[in-house]
Amino acid sequence: MTPDDPQDLFAHLQLLEVELHHPGVPCDAERLEALLHADFHEVGRSGRPYDRATVVRYLSQVLTPPAVDSCDFRLERLAPDLALLSYRSAQRAADGGPALQTLRVSLWKREGQAWQLRYHQGTPAASAD
């Protein structure tokens, strides 16, 4: 899918991003490899760098979806085949309330007919309250 309308692209990339949170469905390695660019890397909330192989291995082994809520998505089209998606996420505590607040940014690149995640970063954030 290569949506050209800004609203369609926004919805499409938001859907792909949230798929990586695997709400109720574990991510399999094949799907992750399709979503993550060959040169994908990220800097996690912890400040640690992760490469594609590490992220694919980790996410494909997570069987229980994490309790994550995401909001405040924004999209900036940087070039015809490059888009920056930013948002806020909160990992829920055992009591259901927000625990870890994170500001996130993802760089999506269109390769052929598919959008792939090229870079991701999480930064600790203060509560949005």
Rank of each mutant, 00 (worst) to 15 (best):
H41N: 10
H41R: 10
V43E: 03
G44T: 12
G44N: 00
G44Y: 04
R45N: 02
R48F: 13
R48C: 11
R48S: 12
R48A: 13
P49M: 15
Y50L: 14
D51A: 04
R52A: 12
R52P: 08
R52L: 13
A53W: 03
T54F: 03
T54K: 01
T54Q: 06
V56N: 06
Y58M: 15
Y58E: 06
Y58T: 15
Y58G: 01
L59P: 00
S60E: 13
S60I: 00
Q61S: 15
Q61H: 15
Q61W: 00
V62S: 04
V62P: 02
V62C: 05
T64S: 09
T64I: 10
P65C: 14
P65T: 07
P66S: 12
P66K: 11
P66L: 05
V68I: 15
D69C: 01
D69W: 04
S70V: 09
S70N: 15
S70I: 00
C71P: 00
C71F: 09
F73H: 13
F73A: 06
F73R: 06
R74H: 11
L75S: 10
E76G: 03
R77I: 14
P80N: 10
P80F: 15
P80R: 11
P80G: 11
D81N: 11
A83P: 07
L84G: 06
L84H: 08
S86Q: 13
S86Y: 03
Y87K: 07
R88V: 05
R88I: 07
R88C: 09
A90W: 04
R92M: 03
R92A: 03
R92I: 00
